[in-house]
Every structure is written in C-alpha cells, then in structure tokens.
C-alpha cells in the first residue's frame, strides 16, 4: 500500500490537471457567448468593490490639485463656448437654408477610471459607471478634452470595461481634415496608429488633424483623434497608409466621458 500511495497521488494530480485544462479550453471556446460576457461583468463588478475604497483614499490627496485644474479648464471652456455659440447659430441657420437634417445629440456620462491594463494583447480600462448608470454596450468614450479614448465592450451594473484605441482589435472610421478623405484607423505594435486605404491622390501632409467621420453609430463626427505624423509610400496602385499620432495620453487619463 505504501509503495502504491505515490503513484495514486501522481495520478490524482494528472486528473486534476486534465480537468483544469478541459475547463480552460471550454472557456476559450465559449468566448463571445452571452453567459461568458455575464461572468466577465460579474467579475468586474466584484473587482470594483475592492478598487473603489483604494481610489477614494487616493482622491483625498489629489482633490485640491484636481479642483484648481478644473477651475482653469472651466474658465477656458467658457471662453471657447461663447465663441462657439455664435458659430453654431450661424451654422444652424445656413444648414436649415440648405435643407440639411439636424445633427444627432449626445449626452455624456462622466466616469472615473478604476484601473487600466496595458499589454501586447489587450489595452483596456475599467470605469466606475455601469448599466445602472445608463451605460450601454458599444458606447463611445472620450476624455476630458473630448478626444477619442475607446468604446465600452463589457458592462456590469456599476462598472464598464473600455477597449482603448491602442488595442489591436479596435477600429474606427476617421476623416482627415485637409483632404476630407475617410479611412479606418487601427493600431498595431509594429506600425503604430495607421489609417489604411487612403486614396493615393489624397492631399495629406504631416500635422493635419484627424477626427472621427461620424459614419458609425458609436462615435459622432468631429471627435478629435490626433495628427498625421507620416505618410507611407504607395505600395499599391490606388491607396496609401497614413500614420497618426494619437492626441490622447492614456497614462494621464483619470476620468472619461461615456457617450450616451
């Protein structure tokens, strides 16, 4: 019996390993399944209970500095708002003269960043607003400067997971402001942020602004994305690639605004 015991113990470990691997493979195969999304939402919700008290303590030390910064931003924003109000009225008047339909209106839900995770496979951050606060799946997310951040890919009642622009699976339709041409922006470790399939004859130069095109239901038009940094040589007959420097600094993002 004594000589049998070690081999039984090794067999038990192997069975447990096979069971763990089988469960892991089942989970991998179930990715995208609604049950798996609900499980992910539950884990996010549970993690928020751990993170919120820690963030509350951090906030105590930064609250005055944040207040001063917000005051300054508010004053600058008010000045810009006054200028913009005049332009909006004139724009509306001209559009109605031309018979254009009205723009979509977007409300925003402010949210604090609970954690961010960056890796070679996934870039995301967790925020403290969820379905109970009006957040829906595939909502667009911008930062305090109304610059592109990402979109909501998973939600729970009080938290949401935001897929960042820097994630390898993220795609967004953008417009280059000089030529007005539209392309799809994506990111990879090798090439950085690139707009693919820009027409070869598009007049694009370094420094041009890039904004969202408004062709999706997720992002309205004119959300600032970044600036053209380089234009790749023509590799096919009709298109070229345009490299972009992103405006958003993900290292400094502490609060975001979810488009509703």
């Amino acid at each position: 019996m004594a000589s049998k015991a070690p081999s039984i113990s090794r067999y038990k470990s192997l069975v447990n390993l096979v069971a763990a691997i089988a469960l892991s493979l089942l989970i991998i195969a179930s990715n995208g399944n609604p049950a798996m999304d609900r499980t992910r939402g539950f884990v996010l919700e549970a993690s928020a209970y751990l993170y919120v008290p820690i963030q509350w303590v951090e906030t105590i030390f930064t609250i005055e500095k944040d207040y001063r910064e917000l005051q300054q931003r508010h004053i600058k924003a008010q000045i810009e708002l006054n200028k913009t109000r005049t332009l909006v009225k004139e724009n509306q008047r001209l559009r109605s003269m031309l018979g254009f339909k009205g723009d979509k209106n977007f409300n925003v839900i402010p949210a604090n960043v609970l954690s961010d995770v960056g890796s070679h496979t996934m870039n995301s951050l967790t925020v403290d607003q969820g379905s109970d606060d009006g957040v829906t799946l595939l909502s667009g997310v911008v930062d305090a400067e109304a610059q592109l951040v990402g979109k909501v890919v998973a939600i729970s009642p009080h938290t949401a997971l935001v897929q960042l622009v820097s994630d390898k699976n993220f795609r967004v339709s953008v417009r280059e402001m000089r030529s007005r041409d539209v392309g799809i922006l994506s990111y990879s470790l090798k090439t950085g942020y690139v707009i693919q399939d820009v027409p070869k004859n598009a007049e694009v130069i370094a420094g041009d602004s890039v904004v969202t095109s408004g062709f999706s239901d997720i992002f309205p038009e004119h959300i600032f994305v970044g600036w053209v940094s380089a234009i790749s040589p023509v590799v096919e007959d009709y298109v070229k690639s345009v490299r972009v420097d992103l405006a958003t600094d993900f290292n400094r993002v502490e609060e975001v605004f979810i488009l509703k």
């Binding site: 390993l17 763990a20 691997i21 469960l23 892991s24 493979l25 089942l26 989970i27 991998i28 179930s30 990715n31 798996m36 499980t39 992910r40 884990v43 996010l44 993690s47 954690s115 995770v117 890796s119 496979t121 996934m122 995301s124 967790t126 890919v153 998973a154 997971l161 897929q163 699976n169």
Partner: peptide, 18 residues
C-alpha cells in the same frame, strides 16, 4: 483574463494550471 478583457479568456487559466 476577465479583468483585462482579453478576447481569449481562459488562456491564462490554462497556462497557470500547467
């Protein structure tokens, strides 16, 4: 894997078990 939002949830579970 659930917290990072990876599209291949379960891979870290498999790797750590091994």
């Amino acid at each position: 894997d659930a917290l990072t939002g990876t599209d291949m949830m379960g891979i870290t579970a498999l790797a750590l078990s091994a």
